[in-house]
Design a protein around this nucleic acid. Structure first.
Lengths: 225, 225
DNA sequence: CGCGATTTTGATTGTTCTCAAGGGTAGTGG
DNA sequence: CCACTACCCTTGAGAACAATCAAAATCGCG
């Protein structure tokens, strides 16, 4: 990270540990004033953009170690809502204090820029997924993403529980619930994974990877160039 | 903006005006080391993520006043390529200098955070467009976006030229070229606009807006919740 | 003027959505 | 503890939107 230990301590001092939150609780809602960034310690959170009629677009699922709220800096208003998916521990980081601190610690400022930049890169990857990949490729990419993120945090990359519903997965990936359900069944039939309700056991990560890259291999698809 | 005039001058001093660039030139390519952010002064630029086989995902079209390269901060490597669409004047901003400057000018630091945050918000809006909207809604939203951005810069919001091909529009919106072409024809038949090759004349911006919002009005679509 | 690239238009196909219905699960309250 | 209910997931059948294939028309450029 490049932060000195004294700096880490100063950073640590502004972070608030919140009491555990429960499924269905909101961290914030669209339109709320922006005060804090949130870091997931344990559990999981979904962010989504609600639309007038009660519909929504799921923007992301956030696992331990991941940051929430960066899109609210611009206008100091949250542009999306954040809902707890399972009992979770979340840290709050008051942004104004973080901002002040970052102006006195250059390496912290740099980390902040990198963090924001990373979020942009991730969103761009997601744009490619939605713009170019079919249903099968999207779900495979989703599972690999979860697997990678669990692994990074020291959890099993093969064996995990989904804290979100099929409905939410479909919403996130731009697919109907039924399509997601059918794909899980198909992946299981093909021996790529075992799925039972929320429990996922990835049996052939390589094959899943191959699926996500399939689009690129096909010669000159229509939307290309 | 909140920058003092002395600060503006300091900022101005690190910005380099480049000679005019021409259609097809590259500002940078995926994998290039990250040195500068780029600001479009005149003309237009597209950014895209190339894939192995020569295909690509268009990530954005950049008009005068808009910034390019924010996704490269994270690893100091460009994750996408940037190609000039028409003869353009582009400013370069060496990022390391900007970063230094921002650590001594708090309001500049704040602007940087806002800029990065805004980019995230825009990408999230695009995710919603690709995840929830049909072809018609996507193209309408695209035209309105262009219109709004031209207007902001003092150009006509009704009458403008497209610097990108139908192919690139389709790629950007996750649609086939033919679909884009058919939609232009349909919009024209319905009196929403006049189109002749690259020349666009928007005749009913309200109707276009209504199209983009159609999805939200329909009661509880499948992917919602 | 002619060639290649781009755009348009038409016909057909196909993936995914939609509609419909059944079964399973978890949570609630009697 | 069991019944009830609401929600979630699955599966099937049909419809629809957009992709694909094909070809003609137009444009830009050397």
């Amino acid at each position: 990270m490049g932060l000195e230990s004294g700096d880490v301590e100063r950073l640590d001092r502004i972070v608030k540990r919140s009491r555990p939150l429960h499924r269905g609780d909101h961290l914030f809602r669209e339109g709320d004033g922006f005060q804090c960034l949130y870091i997931v310690k344990t559990g999981s959170v979904k962010t989504y953009a609600p639309s007038e009629d009660g519909g929504e677009q799921v923007l992301g699922f956030h696992l331990p170690g991941e940051l929430i709220g960066l899109d609210a800096i611009e206008n100091a208003i949250h542009h999306c809502s954040a809902k707890i998916l399972e009992t979770s521990a979340i840290c709050e980081v008051p942004f104004s204090q973080l901002e002040e601190l970052s102006s006195t610690i250059p390496s912290l400022q740099h980390q902040m820029y990198r963090l924001l930049s990373k979020e942009i890169t991730q969103d761009e990857n997601m744009l490619t997924l939605l713009g170019k990949n079919n249903a099968e490729e999207r779900l495979a990419a989703f599972l690999i993403s979860l697997s990678t993120r669990f692994k990074r945090r020291g959890f099993s990359p093969y064996d995990f529980y989904l804290s979100m519903s099929r409905h939410e997965i479909g919403n996130y990936l731009g697919l109907a619930v039924e399509t997601v359900s059918r794909l899980f069944t198909r992946f299981q039939d093909e021996g790529l994974l075992q799925v039972e309700r929320k429990h996922i056991l990835l049996k052939d990560l390589d094959a899943l990877s191959r699926i996500t890259q399939r689009q690129q291999q096909g010669e000159n698809k229509r939307q290309s160039t």
